[in-house]
Write a protein that binds this DNA or RNA. Structure first.
Lengths: 147, 147
DNA sequence: ACCGTTATTCTGAGTCGCTCACAATAAGAC
DNA sequence: GTCTTATTGTGAGCGACTCAGAATAACGGT
């Protein structure tokens, strides 16, 4: 447990669902000389130890969070990219009973809900045709992962 | 509807869950001069039209399949990387009722079941400690996406 | 059939996110 | 306080994909 690891862990703890690149900037507040590669290594190590969980949505760098051991899921706003944690819907192991597993023994199910978050929905109501480009262009006050 | 697009479509149809790179080689049986970039463009176009569906598991290039309109899911063997289609378990829209959506209106749920397929399970039974490295190293007789 | 317009494909370079090999450094054990 | 091992830092490199722009091919009208 080095100071770099603790710094990365607290950075992720404070900024859930952050990509590695953001973690670097957060950690550099404390350790200005830490390198990008070290952060990648530390993130991978902590993920192996299951102190962190890595979440890889499409078209996005991998995001890290500290809720690692419980098997929760994620809701992803397709407009602004916001991500929220979602607990299992149906009991403990929700989607763990697929209809036909082709002989596979299932370990876990990763669920990604795609939807539109409240703020994006209200800002789209005024617009005649919603402009998905605005989402990627300007993450205004709250960045993609800062909420 | 050009011959390139038809060739790509049939290639994906014949080789479900194939990455773009493999599609290139398949298509080149018919159109030896097609370029990698064209295949990428065609795959993106066909995905937009919803003639294809793009599936992006972690640590793997994007895979394409022709079952595009139905919202089915995938089971992924964590040892050999084999992928099987899985229909919805609980009714029509299985995991579409998360416990707390944080104000998001959910459009769809993508589910990835992680497990171990039958052949990997039987080959691991002999081994004292299962060696996950072998998985990435040698996809033995059946390649990662050829099954 | 010919021509023009638009969509599709090709060429070649470039980007992003991440990984690798290896040297330098720091942390814990004796 | 040294020694050994784990952790960081350095710098290059890779895979998968994207982009800008030129060349080509597919329709639609005459």
């Amino acid at each position: 447990m080095t100071k770099q690891r603790i710094a990365v862990l607290t950075a992720v703890h404070r900024h859930q669902h952050s990509p590695a690149e953001n973690i670097v900037t957060y950690v550099r507040d404390e350790l200005p000389n830490i390198t990008v590669q070290s952060v990648y290594v530390v993130l991978a190590d902590l993920t192996d130890i299951e102190l962190l969980r890595k979440f890889q949505p499409p078209n996005t760098p991998a995001l890290y969070e500290t809720r690692a051991s419980d098997n929760h899921h994620h809701a992803l706003c397709v407009v602004c990219g916001r991500i929220e944690d979602v607990d299992c819907a149906i009991g403990e192991a929700p989607c763990l009973t697929p209809s036909e597993t082709h002989g596979m023994s299932i370990i876990a199910a990763d669920v990604v809900y795609r939807g539109i978050c409240q703020s994006c929905r209200s800002s789209e109501e005024g617009t005649g045709s919603p402009d998905p480009h605005a989402a990627h262009a300007a993450p205004t006050s709250s960045g993609l992962t800062a909420h």
